[in-house]
Every structure is written in structure tokens, then in C-alpha cells.
Design a protein around this nucleic acid. Structure first.
Lengths: 281, 281
DNA sequence: CGGATAATGAAATAAATTTACATAATTCCT
DNA sequence: AGGAATTATGTAAATTTATTTCATTATCCG
């Protein structure tokens, strides 16, 4: 664990003097890593052995070892933390915060994924006669993107961001079809119904949603993307980004599974786009 | 710069003994950061002062300082590197690779962004009478997402992923309209034309694309998202993800700029969605 | 080959860290 | 509240670690 967080966590368990050290360290960790134990002790108005004991309490071998850990904690910069946008933020500040939160959330999503489920999903997708992507609102754009990706694979793929079309499509589905339903909340009524309809008509339903939600219960397989809910009004939902990355993973798995002949085909699609573009000089 | 890379780079400029130290360090840097100067000297079969001189040559204050730098270099572990997917990868492996590459690319994109340009773009968007988002292919989904985001702000916003609709819309644009054209390559002919048409009709054109491309030249403002091109057949284009995050930034800037009354309105939109969802138990 | 320059190491010095122990503060129990 | 027991803190010495100095050795170049 990051030693700075650890210090913050264990702040209550420290003695008076140890807390003094902790405060000095947290106030300017970047100075501390270049300071000697004597300098730090003086700064905190306590004795050198106290600093040493402080270090040991944090499971380091001693002061130099502690500095090493501290340096490593700092090396990651401010390692992609979920910081909230503030009303007084400058453009630079909120840009950084949003990008970093997005990264933090992608990281979280990655950790919550189960690769065996991804494997099974790829299995199903490669064997599908037809693939449909359904989403509403923000997830509609994800479904849109998914269609675009899978379209290149030369498989029958559709996407709908319209409730009626989704229902009709679900009702018309049959054995061998795979329906991918995308919803961050997993609580959008019409999507839950669509999932249910699709299953009644023998399609396999893959849900890209959170676990333990009404939608999750209707799916054959749930690819759960656990991303914190958007509690903050200013903060964008990065669940979409995580979902998109997951789609990338599925698409990649699909390509790998299909083997080399299939990949030649992919290259053809890519090349076919060339004439619509200006050449690079 | 990462000190390990630095060592590798300057390997030629080292003397015989220094090279011995370098080799020991590179062989097991994780051991070295816990070793004393004596231990390292012995390991490399050279004297302690030589180690010290080696450290100074690398612009560190001495051995302890060197260890600090080394520790920091190691701290980033394999920090979100762009690793390519391999044919023999397991699901777990390619999932990790894709997620990490995505993060690496988001990080790159963040670095390439200029916050003053973001600021100006937000200015323009808040003052726009009407906002249009245009994209094709993969960027169509980004435009779709952007529409969804800005729609919540209760401003006139449209998106088109159809060349003809884009052209018509561009031709009908007028002073005060903002057209956002999204394209990773910046070389898609029809989008370049649309940008040009929109400008001829007095719209302000914001490009979300790479710098120094035909499209960039047609725009009033270019939000350049520099993400490595997809050289690898298996690797997804993460430019979309970076673009989406940028859209998030613009939307957030928009909200902040519009002030508190506007944000009440936002909350209303959010609440209005509630009835379409299953309650959380 | 020989003088100049650079590289290296031994030993001494200086600095930093840790230990041992004494003292002060705090807690806990009656 | 008072005093033993425990815990926290500091002083000073010991130890470890790093750096400097300087003599020696190797390398380069005419």
C-alpha cells in the first residue's frame, strides 16, 4: 500500500510525537525524501530516535528504508485518484481531475473484471449467428461504438438506441443470436424487459452492467463493470469509458479466436477506407 | 527521466568499473535499492568510491540520492505501457494489455492537451446558439455520446453520422453556431469538406483531431488529441476513449461556466430519469 | 617508449543512523 | 487522588554508512 495513505490511515494510532512527524511528512513529502533523520527530527521538534521508531511502526526497516518507500509512493505522482471537480477550478485543474478520475475508474473496472467470463463471452460472440447491441442514453453511444467495431468483422451486427426497435429486435431473435445489453445502472426498466424478451426467444443475453441489478438477473452472462456511481454533479460518468474498453477487449478476443484467415479479412476492411482519406504527405 | 533508462543510455560513456556497477544495478535494481554502498561495491567487485562517482555522474547527489531516484524509477512498476496483444495471449493477458494501453493513451492525450484552448472552446460552446457534433465511423459514436451529454444542458444540440445530413446541416449553419468535427486521422475527406462548408457559412468550427492534418487546417480551433496510431491489427484504437474524455472535460467546463442556476436545471434532468428505473432496494 | 591524463582503490574522515539506557509522561488501579 | 506500571521520549554513545583525500595503477597519445 502507498505509505502516505498508510500514514493518513494510522494517524489515530500514533503518539503525540509521532503525529508531529506524520504531519511534517504529509505537509511536504517531497522535501522529506531528501532530508536526513536529523533534519526531519528538528523540523518536527522531536528527537531522532522518535523518527526512527515512527518508521519502524510503519513496517519499514528504518529511516532510509522509510524514505525509499515514501519516494516510491511519490513516484506515481498523484496516482490517478478520484478527485472531485470544484466550482473554482481552472480549466487546467478540471481537465487534470477528469482525466485522472477516468484513469482511476478504468483501473477499478479492470480489477473488477473476471477473465473467465470474458472468455465465455468471446466464445458466445464468435459462435453467434447475429449480434445485437442495445443501450439507452449514455450507453447508446457505447452500443453504437460496439456495432462499429464488430461490423468490421463481417458478422451480422446491429445496434439500437430506440426502445421500440430494441423490443422488436428482441422478439424476433432466435437460437444462436447474441444480444448484448449495456446499462451502467442496470435498472432501466425498458432494457430489463428487452433482456427478458430476448431470452424468452432463445437468444443468449450478455449484460454489460453492474452485478446484482435487475438487469443482471435477466442475463445469461454478466460482464460486471464496477465503477463508482456519479455522486458528483460535475463529474462525468466514466462508466461509459470502462464499457468501451471492455468492448475493445471483447473485440480483440473475437479477432484472436477467429484465427489468421479472418485477420486478412480485417486488413482488407482497413485498406478499403484508404480512398476516403487524404494521403499523408 | 527514468534513471534506469538513463543508465542504459549512457552505458557507452562509462568506464570499465562503472560499467560493472551499471550491470549489477540493471540486473537486479530491486536488490540494489536495499543495499549499502559497500554491498553494491562488493557485488560489482569494485571499490566504494567508484560507486559513489558513478552516482554523481548520473547527476545525483550521492549514493543515497541515487537509490532514491532508482526507487522512484522502479515504483512505476510497468506503468501503463503500450504493450501489444500477442496471438498466444490468454483472456486475462489481453484484457490487462488493452486496459493498460488505454490508460497509457489517455495519459498521453492528457499531456498533449492545451488548457487555454480548452478554455476558449468552452467559451465558444457556452455562447453557441446551436451545437452540432459530426463524426464518422468510430468517431460517430463519440459524436453520439457528445450529443447525449450536451443534450442534458438544455441547449440545441444535434449529431450526425451521415455524410449527407452533415453537409446539409453545415450548409444551413449560421453565425453563432458551433460545429464540432471529430476525426482521429483528420484525413477523412468528407469531414474536411463539411468543416470547410460550415466555416463558409459563418459557423465556428472546433476540431477534435490531430494537429497538422487537413481537417485541423479547416478549423477555427483544434483540440488536438495526440494518441499513437493503431499500428497493430489486434490493438483497438484508443483515440475514441481519449476523445470521449475530452468531451467530458468540455461538458464539465460548460457546466461550471454556466453557474449555479443552470446546475439546478441539470439536477432536474437527472431526477426526471428516475421513474424510468427500478428503485434501488 | 614516456609523459600526461584518467581511473581506481585504501585509508581516513565525516555524516547519518541506530542502539542502549535513562528520564519523563501517561495510564491504570485501588 | 496517589502511586506503581506502562509507555513515550530524549541523550549520548556506538555503529553503520557514505564521502573525501590522496597515492597508486592503468590507459591514452605523440
Amino acid at each position: 500500500m502507498n505509505i502516505l495513505e498508510k500514514i493518513a490511515n494510522e494517524l489515530d494510532t500514533f503518539s503525540k510525537s509521532e503525529r508531529k512527524v506524520a504531519e511534517v511528512i504529509m505537509a511536504s513529502p517531497n522535501t522529506v525524501i531528501h532530508a536526513s533523520i536529523a533534519a526531519l527530527a528538528k523540523q518536527a521538534n522531536i528527537s531522532e530516535p522518535t523518527v526512527n521508531r515512527f518508521c519502524r511502526r510503519l513496517d519499514t526497516k528504518g529511516y532510509p528504508d522509510f524514505k525509499l518507500h515514501l519516494a516510491q509512493s511519490l513516484a506515481n505522482g498523484t496516482p490517478y485518484v478520484n478527485r472531485h471537480v470544484d466550482e473554482s477550478d481552472t480549466a487546467e485543474e478540471y481537465t487534470t481531475k477528469i482525466f485522472e478520475s477516468t484513469m482511476a475508474n478504468i483501473e477499478l473496472a479492470r480489477k473488477s473484471l473476471d477473465s473467465s467470463i470474458i472468455n465465455r463471452s468471446v466464445d458466445l460472440l464468435t459462435q453467434a449467428n447475429k449480434i445485437s447491441f442495445f443501450g439507452l442514453g449514455a450507453s447508446a453511444a457505447v452500443a453504437h461504438d460496439a456495432q462499429n467495431k464488430f461490423f468490421r468483422f463481417n458478422v451480422p451486427v446491429v445496434y439500437f438506441d430506440d426502445i421500440l426497435m430494441q423490443r422488436m429486435s428482441a422478439i424476433n431473435s432466435q437460437q444462436g443470436d447474441v444480444v448484448v445489453v449495456i446499462s451502467h445502472t442496470g435498472r432501466t426498466k425498458s432494457l430489463v424487459e428487452v433482456a427478458s424478451l430476448a431470452r424468452e426467444n432463445d437468444a443468449t443475453v450478455i449484460g454489460i452492467t453492474s452485478n446484482n441489478t435487475p438487469l443482471a438477473k435477466e442475463c445469461n452472462i454478466v460482464l460486471s463493470v464496477e465503477v463508482p456511481e456519479d455522486t458528483d454533479l460535475y463529474m462525468p460518468m466514466s462508466s461509459r469509458i470502462a464499457q468501451l474498453t471492455l468492448i475493445d477487449v471483447l473485440a480483440t478476443g473475437f479477432t484472436l479466436r477467429r484465427g489468421s484467415k479472418f485477420r486478412d479479412n480485417l486488413k482488407k476492411v482497413k485498406d478499403s477506407l484508404r480512398s476516403s482519406r487524404f494521403e499523408k504527405k
